[in-house]
Design a binder for these strands. Structure first.
Length: 898
RNA sequence: GGGUGGUUAGCUCAGCUGGUUCAGAGCACCUGCCUUACAAGCAGGGGGUCAUAGGUUCGAAUCCUAUACCACCCACCA
């Protein structure tokens, strides 16, 4: 694609904005994101479809970054990776937006016909829809855009209808008049899951009801005095001695002066309030149950919009909260308001409109959950479907075990219209049919009236809950619902990993599992990775209404998509909330820059017209090469393990450390040419370039843009040799050498200690020093001598000596590392007091350490019970420490004594 | 009312099967460096009774039990 870079014209700072778009188009145009079934193993992810008119927020960023990491790695592992993107029509959310927009134009929904409204909704969708998918490209999401689906497009619409009919035929779907959650703002029913309960400060009103024909009265306590208008009984506990005489009597409901009975039911808690409960069967779930049990009248005193209806008699047309104020005043005037107490109370709010939910008796469509939930519960509990983290299994189980029927009808227009057709006014005068023609036929058959025509039947006005379409998503995106045997679904389903927020575990995850087993007899995915919730520094959930969410697009412009990705991934293990801080992105950007400069360094050392080997052939005689290879393989193995356990942050950490700490801080420093201005030898640079390429491969899933950019610069590549499809590094066990790593680590420590000496005594890095090492054994000394060049490369050294037998020179700074003594003669530069302090400090540290080791070893229990290996390790530690201490003390007592 | 998780450096958090990756990372802080890849950097350094109290164990940040505080989820007590 592009020419390999040789010249030194690479900018000092990586500029993400200049490359991101280029590579994204390159990937997309060359079909790297696209998947078709083939002989390879499939790896499938379906995106949690964002709301079609939604805007990218930090939650999406986290979520999709993780998916992209998984997908890109799978692709590099040679799997046929398929990440299906798409959007959700988000019935209630979108409809609310359209209504709002129309309102601004002075149009109310009621002014429009269904079709007119839908035209507006589609217009809105076409205009604002899919922006979020564009934004995902900026992030680098490697979705198969050719497969983009929308839950309201024809095929998926049809699948939802088929699903409804199928479940109806199987006896799971029914129509019933039940208490549902009513959103007076959106004027629709909601499922239980769409109601959020929040604790609020409210008031408990004590109201006096007169007993008919007596001077006596009875006091009830209520938080909703306006519903007094619809009271049809007062209830006490059957055993409550205080009220025995009242049971069976009649009391008079204030204001409306309705005569209602005093009934007894064990539901009432005598301890609470006055022990008397007013019963309003139409406006409270429990009251409804009691009403059913005792055959009470049901008075519905509220309109759909939450205003008082004619049935309320008083305050008609007033909003329910307005009516509350009014009735309190009137009760007070009538001397029937006994007292008002402050209390905290849990109130249900609509997830979408934030309106206070009204329990309402209503005729709706429901889906039975008892059977559907069985395999869905079982297969999560037995880990057929794994949850990461698995703590969510508990809440899943709890929800599944207490699952109630799902109210699936919504009094909205934006969505899949319920395929029920009514031909009469009777409760059962309806048929379920896919088309009008079919409905006529069925209606004729069911009613026995063969003269029925299209004009005699009416389709249900309502649509289905959004989640009634999203729960089919893993099937419908592959047309698997329409055509259960098609090649696509058989190839891609079950999908592999699902990445989503725990918030929608019940809304979506649980239901996909249910529908998957019901319709395909198989799980929809194998693993569910729950992300954390992105919060701000004050722990508040990031939301549009709070305005505390940074604009992801701006963030990416500022730090680069790679930088933001790293920032998100770094501190977010599965299921842990992420307190978002821009500093994290800065860390990501800095990392990108570090990598960029490593690349820049290697490039600057390239020689023109020189071929660099494409194979990683290390110099086996070179400790540094062997060490780097060992570290590389150790990391490959570690990263594979972490990724398989979905510990993505840990995987990234390992790569980060390998690149920054090992490759940049040590390896690069050690391959630098000896003379300034000289270039690294071809062989050395070949090895370095190959190492670097391996690092880029490991990093690619996490930071796709910079890795592709560098990859394409390092060598000329054919299109099919792009980074995105490079083969994931293979772990070679034989390449891991504990000996090499151990020796190199010792050398690193010696060099660090020399650096420390320089820092302590203000010896500048350029100033030459002598370095004398007294090794524990001759073999060790030999190893140091063989690697003298390493010391010399990283330190300005005049004289270097490494022996097993060596006399400590006078006035030198000393350190002891694992029993190896390191001397730096500093005639005239050394401050003896300072040096004494330095040595004493080290002695103190080692003595503390020795104490704990010796303690362990003198404990018989430890020696007898711990594994030999562990005991031996402690013995080695003890010996080493003792040797080091002895030597340090010797130094202190001979050379540093006054 | 039930459930789940958290409490580790000034801040944000890692820390998997109990023992050499066990006390870590980044940021912040202190000291010295514009050392030719990188000051978005380099080198060195300070800083923690791993919430509290018990227990298990030869051995606990890690396992168990309580307690405290925090967070989240679920539930119809007016």
């Amino acid at each position: 694609m592009s020419k390999p870079t040789i010249l030194q014209d690479i900018p000092k700072h990586f500029d993400p904005n200049s490359v991101e778009e280029k590579w994204y188009s390159f990937w997309e145009e060359n079909g790297f994101f696209h998947s078709e079934p083939d002989e390879r193993e499939s790896y499938t992810v379906v995106i949690p479809p964002p709301n079609v008119t939604g805007v990218l927020h930090m939650g999406h960023m986290l979520n999709n970054t993780i998916q992209d990491v998984l997908v890109r790695r799978a692709r590099m592992l040679g799997k046929n990776a398929c990440w299906v993107p798409g959007t959700d029509h988000a019935s209630i959310a979108t409809e609310a937006k359209v209504v709002q927009k129309l309102r601004k134009e002075g149009i109310t929904k009621a002014d429009l016909t269904r079709d007119e409204f839908l035209d507006h909704a589609w217009e809105w969708t076409d205009e604002h829809g899919g922006i979020i998918l564009q934004q995902l490209r900026k992030l680098g999401a490697s979705c198969d855009w050719e497969r983009t689906r929308f839950t309201l497009e024809d095929d998926l619409y049809e699948a939802v209808i088929d699903c409804f009919i199928e479940l109806y035929d199987r006896g799971y779907i029914y129509r019933g008049k039940r208490m549902i959650n009513w959103d007076p703002e959106a004027q629709t029913a909601l499922s239980d899951e769409e109601v959020l309960h929040r604790e609020v400060q409210s008031k408990l009103y004590y109201v006096r009801y007169k007993v008919k024909g007596e001077d006596d009265g009875i006091t009830i306590a209520t938080t909703r005095p306006e519903t007094i208008l619809a009271d049809t009984a007062v209830c006490v506990h059957p055993d409550d001695e205080r009220y025995q005489n009242l049971i069976g009597k009649t009391v008079i409901v204030p204001i409306v002066e309705r005569e209602v009975p005093v009934i007894a039911d064990e539901y009432v808690d005598p301890e609470y309030g006055t022990g008397c409960l007013k019963i309003t069967p139409a406006h409270d779930e429990n009251d409804y149950q009691i009403g059913q049990k005792h055959g009470l009248e049901i008075i519905d005193m509220l309109n759909a919009d939450g205003t008082v209806s004619e049935a309320g008699q008083f305050y008609v047309g007033e909003d329910r909260f307005e009516a509350r104020e009014l009735i309190i005043k009137d009760l007070d005037k009538a001397n029937q308001l006994v007292k008002v107490e402050e209390m905290t109370n849990k109130i249900g709010y609509s997830e979408r409109t934030n309106a206070i939910i009204e329990p309402r008796l209503s005729l709706q469509w429901f889906c039975r959950m008892d059977e559907l939930s069985k395999p869905a519960l079982e297969n999560v509990i037995n880990d057929e479907i794994k949850f990461y983290p698995d703590k969510f299994k508990n809440s899943y189980r709890h929800w599944m075990e207490n699952i109630r029927d799902w109210c699936i009808s919504r009094q909205l227009w934006w969505g899949q219209r319920i395929p029920a057709w009514y031909y009469g006014d009777g409760k059962d005068d309806y048929v379920i049919a896919k088309t009008e023609e079919e409905a006529v036929e069925k209606a004729r058959a069911k009613s026995g009236n063969n003269s029925l025509t299209k004009d005699d039947i009416n389709q249900d006005e309502d649509v289905l809950d959004t989640w009634f379409s999203s729960w089919l998503w893993p099937m419908t995106v592959f047309d698997g619902f329409k055509d259960p045997d098609n090649e696509e679904i058989n190839y891609y389903y079950p999908t592999n990993d699902l990445v989503t927020a725990p918030e929608i575990m019940f809304f979506w995850v649980a239901r996909m599992i249910m529908s998957g087993y019901e319709f395909r007899g198989e799980k929809p995915f194998s693993n569910v990775y729950y992300t954390g919730i992105v919060r701000d520094k004050k722990r508040r959930k990031m939301s549009k209404s709070l305005g505390n969410s940074p604009d992801p697009i701006k963030l990416m412009e500022q730090y680069g998509a790679d930088g933001v990705r790293v920032g998100m991934l770094f501190s977010s293990p599965a299921g842990n909330d992420l307190l978002f801080d821009e500093q994290l992105c800065e860390q990501g950007r800095n990392f990108a820059n570090k990598i960029w400069n490593a690349f820049r360094f290697l490039s600057m050392n390239k020689q023109e017209d020189t071929e660099y080997s494409t194979e990683l052939n290390i110099d086996k005689d070179n400790l540094v090469d062997r060490w780097m290879l060992s570290r590389l393989n150790e990391t490959i193995e570690g990263v594979n393990k972490e990724m398989e356990a979905f510990r993505i942050n840990e995987a990234l950490r390992k790569i980060y450390s390998l690149i920054w700490d090992d490759f940049c801080d040590w390896y690069i420093e050690l391959i630098k040419a000896d003379e300034q201005g000289a270039k690294i030898s071809t062989d050395r640079l070949s090895v370095a370039l190959n190492f670097f390429e391996e690092l880029m491969k490991l990093l690619h899933p996490f930071m796709p843009f910079i890795t592709e950019e560098i990859w394409q610069h390092i060598r000329p590549r054919e299109t099919d040799e792009a980074m995105i499809v490079a083969q994931w590094p293979e772990f070679e066990k034989a390449a891991v050498s504990e000996d090499d790593q151990g020796l190199f680590a010792t050398i690193q420590r010696i060099i660090s200690s020399v650096r420390n000496v320089r820092a302590e005594f203000n010896v500048s890095p350029n100033e030459e020093i002598n370095l004398l090492i007294k090794a524990k054994h001759e073999s060790m000394a030999k190893a140091f001598r063989q690697n003298e060049w390493i010391f010399r490369k990283l330190q300005s050294i005049a004289k270097f000596e490494a022996k097993a037998d060596l006399k400590k020179p006078k006035t030198s700074a000393s350190s002891v590392i694992e029993g190896t003594e390191v001397f730096v003669p500093l005639e005239g530069l050394i401050d003896l007091n300072k040096e004494r302090e330095r040595v004493e400090k080290e002695i103190n540290r080692l003595e503390g350490f020795l104490k704990s080791v010796t303690g362990k070893l003198s404990n018989e229990g430890f020696v007898n019970n711990a594994p030999d290996e562990v005991v031996q390790r402690e013995r080695d530690k003890q010996e080493d420490t003792e040797t080091s201490l002895r030597k340090l003390k010797e130094i202190l007592n001979t050379d540093l004594s006054d």
